[in-house]
């Protein structure tokens, strides 16, 4: 019961975050939003009884991939805002 409500709210947040990730002008905000999508996906994995996948998604999808994105973005700082 409460699992369904949590899943629906998480889904709404994830879809909105995906929209922000696609359409925001600043690349840094888009990257943070993509990381947040992964972060909430890992809660959804816990609801789906997959803690292994949740651990992987949390540590890799929203940790290291955000780190790598930002290291690359740091080298092309001029293009942070889309042109």
């Amino acid at each position: 019961m409460i699992q369904l409500i949590i899943a629906i709210v998480l889904g709404m947040i994830m879809i909105l975050m995906a929209g922000v990730a696609i359409y925001h002008k600043k690349l840094k905000v888009a990257i943070i939003a993509a990381g947040a999508v992964s972060l909430f996906a890992s809660i959804l994995y816990i609801l789906l009884a997959a803690p292994d996948v949740a651990l992987t998604e949390a540590s890799i999808g929203s940790g290291l991939s955000v780190v790598i994105f930002f290291y690359v973005l740091n080298k092309i700082r001029k293009y942070d805002t889309e042109k």
């Binding site: 803690p51 292994d52 651990l55 540590s59 890799i60 940790g63 290291l64 780190v67």
Partner: peptide, 17 residues
């Protein structure tokens, strides 16, 4: 428990980060 080589390796890499 949940976890394994890949997750542990990722956590260790984030410690170095």
């Amino acid at each position: 428990s949940p976890g394994g080589g890949f997750q542990g390796g990722a956590v260790i890499a984030s410690a170095f980060v």
